[in-house]
Write a protein that binds this DNA or RNA. Sequence first.
DNA 1: CGGGCTCGACTTTTT
DNA 2: GTCGAGCCCG
Length: 783
Amino acid sequence: MNTNYLNELNERQREAVSHINGPLMIVAGAGSGKTKVLTTRIAHLMRNGVDAFNILALTFTNKAAREMKERIERILGGHEARNLYIGTFHSVFARILRSEAHKVGYPNDFTIYDADDAKSVVKTVINELNLDDKHYKPNLVYNRISAAKNSLMSPSEYQHDYYIQQEDMRANRPMIGKIYDLYAKRCYKNGAMDFDDLLYVFYHLLKNVPEVLSKYQHKFRYIMIDEYQDTNPAQYEIIKLLGAVHENIAVVGDDAQSIYSFRGATIQNILQFEKDYDGVKVVKLEQNYRCTKSILDVANQVIKNNKGQIEKELWTDNDEGEKIRLVRTTTDNEEGKFVADTIAEQKLRNHYENRDFVILYRTNAQSRSFEESLRRMNIPYRIFGGLSFYQRKEIKDFVAYLRVIINTRDEEALKRIINYPARGIGKTTLDKVTLIANEQDITFWQVLTSAASFGFKSGTLEAIDGFVTMIQSFQSQLAKSNAYDVAVQVGKSTNIVKELFNDKTTEGLARYENVQELLNSIKEFTETPTEDGELLEKSLGSYLQQITLLTDADQGTDENSDVVKLMTIHAAKGLEFPVVFSVGLEETLFPNNMAINSREELEEERRLFYVAITRAKSKLWVTYANSRYRFGNLVQNEPSRFIDEIPEKHVDRSYAGGGVRNMGSSSPSWGGIGSAARGGNNMFDTMKKKTPGSPTPSSSSTARPMPKPAAASSNHTPSANFTPDDPNTMEVGMQVEHQKFGFGTITQLEGAANNRIATVNFPKGGGDKKIMLNYAKLMIINK
DNA sequence: CGGGCTCGACTTTTT
DNA sequence: GTCGAGCCCG
């Protein structure tokens, strides 16, 4: 074991690491070596005689957990670290629930519903209550249910809470409480927990089953929590229960980086920690090892505009560094072009690699212009935050079979596959089964297994029996062989694999490959020896639980692939990059329109900007566009108020204005050189995500769908050089071309800049048409 | 039952 | 603009 680990720490860090017993709060500024402190502290605990079995470390992402594990192993050696309990809140609790859930009425092989499953159940319930799902939007309702659970509020409490009811009444949605109640009952009946239940149910398990509480209180004598500022009330209460006996709770967090309040996190948890426990040792890590002086100063000045923070002053020994580049472009497309051009330039000039760059935006929808520009420059990139592999339709369909095999009560999965592939069990039959299930208060599956007694037509009955028999045969096979063999059998018996194989379209090919990858991942799972030797961990049920808790970010951890990364600021937390582009700094976008209604919301947006700034090690570009397309409309935006908060002395505006013109269609020559010389066929890098231990989706989120064939109604083939012109340059009398309707003459114009409507006469395209210029593009042929 | 079309939604989202 | 759900029709 490395015995010098304490020497590698600064004084404050050493103070935190050496604190062994009693509550500890580490206020860790951005880039202050937080993970290092956490991992070293765990190693230090073990060196001082604490048994690995007694240590619990909770993180928010699988990635953070993995990283911690690896770093501890590096200090201690693998065999000693093996018995540590390190994982996300959700995965650790799910793992415990797998052996304890029956004590609160759930099967131990419970299904985990991801957000899509959960919303689908919400929708089912809304429809069953004969409510209008246009008004009771499943998304919105689910978010309220989620918020309730994160505050440990039961359906009954929800329905009796005066304030909540007032809110729902005001929104004219008084039935949300009822929906919550039925939703919870339905999940319970289905033997399923959603993500929030993993906390909610776990809390009630501890609260209501004293021997379980006692067992884990004594097991987890030392508890460590990462990103404490992002914990919600449910997590807070759980920690309180678990830590009550020993009070050896160490929390690490940074109030300035709390950006998940919209998911129920409450910054109060960290602000109050000192009051919650007696004799809290507080250590502040204020030395930043990541950023240049200017970048750090910008971050400090920006965050000063927030009230009510834990007092701290981050400083660094690093170089002064360069100024922050502030760049204004005319449009979102120009912004994309500028960033791609600059990346190419920086690669040449400063010998950066693709992986040194990250583009950070506020909303996922902003990725498009960057994708296009990067693609044009042949710069390989990867977008984080797209669909997770396991959320793809073909994967969810296949996995649904496995879910039903494990838990026939899983109605969501059952409905997915009962007629996939088509076997003659249509909507009519489904409705009937649902009706019977609800009337008789039995599960969907029970109706299917005794379908004969419910008077289905003979053809339908045959189809149902065939399906039931098939599932049952999978189940009995599972008793004899492993998860992989069963999965292969599912692929064969259902013809799914063959069917996908025969689909020779690009999309079909991708789907086939994805299913193959799924099978590979199951194979790998069953064949890799377990770390901790728990038999349960190799079962199909455990595989299913594990994959539901994986996200897109977990698969994108191939540090070796040399690609530019694109992600939301939220997704970037905890990461660092030599060069950061923080883009879209515009009012209504960042701070986002939806988050400027209260001081709290605005401050969270500012913290988000703080997170963006502090991701940068040496160079930071901040960009914004005068106008951009949003929801298909061209909108003009003011520069973000956050820009004004950047101290002028750190700002280099020399790219602004003139820079835009430089970046125009006549790209600087280095742009072209960069792309041709370095990009090459490396584009394939962006098409593959490779991660040891997880599947490789062949069509990653960066792969764009093939262009759709022209609509049947179209009888015009657009000119080869068709390029739409700016709606604002259109005038009455102009000859224009439309992609579908062909050539025509503008006869009338109405509406303001963003909402311009042209009436165009198309002689060959059906006469006068009203064209929303923001949607259907026109090219000017003749003025 | 499935293809094709229209209509409507659309902030962030560790799990 | 882009995606997906849901409806209609063959």
